[in-house]
């Protein structure tokens, strides 16, 4: 199925939880989904016979400029039917929450922990959302565009002394 057909299918099933289909300025046509509806959309995408998206290739957080919304992008693939779809969910910076797909795809477990660690996006329903790359007592979420590194961490200077 093409991305346009999948978008039509999803829109028919989930109506206003599917916001739009972005086709301009991207090599992968993207379906924008409301953040709280990601879990049920992914359940539908995986369990329906005609869609059968059994493989989550990539899950990444994204910050455009330091002021507007954060977003999470999902790249899905079906190994049986060999078609692709990309999903995107926008969420506001102060209170970012997206529903988790860790119980649907095993890949999402660690990828969501990384998005929490580096972007501060909370995934509701994740079994164990804690930092994965940085230490538990690290302050801040480094990949956000407005992140400023602290001067010291546990007594060690971070910036290079020139």
């Amino acid at each position: 199925m093409t991305e346009q057909e999948i978008y039509a299918d999803l829109s028919a099933k989930f109506s206003d939880k599917i916001v739009e289909l972005i086709e301009a300025e991207t090599f992968n046509p993207t379906v924008v989904v409301a953040p709280a509806a990601i879990t049920e959309v992914c359940h539908y995408l995986k369990d329906t016979e005609t869609l059968n998206f059994n493989s989550l290739m990539n899950l990444a957080g994204h910050d455009t400029d330091g002021e507007s919304d954060l977003s999470v992008i999902y790249h899905l693939h079906s190994t049986e039917l060999d078609h692709y779809i990309t999903l995107k969910a926008f969420t506001n910076r102060e209170n970012s929450e997206v529903s988790s797909v860790a119980n649907i795809y095993g890949t999402a477990d660690w990828h969501e922990r990384e998005a929490w660690d580096l972007y501060g996006i909370k995934f509701t329903g994740h079994p164990d959302l804690k930092r994965i790359l940085l230490e538990e007592d690290w302050e801040g979420h480094p990949l956000k565009k407005d992140y400023v590194a602290a001067e010291f961490y546990r007594g060690m200077r971070i910036e290079k002394v020139k």
Binding site: T26, N28, M57, A60
Partner: peptide
């Protein structure tokens, strides 16, 4: 040009994917 891409290739360990977002400048956005 402005846009985003997810490109995958077969590296020695498996599927190596690059998700690149560009905003038209000479520095990548992501």
């Amino acid at each position: 040009p402005k846009g985003e891409i997810y490109f995958r290739s077969e590296n020695a360990r498996g599927e190596l994917g690059y998700y690149i977002v560009s905003n038209g400048k000479n520095v990548p956005l992501r």
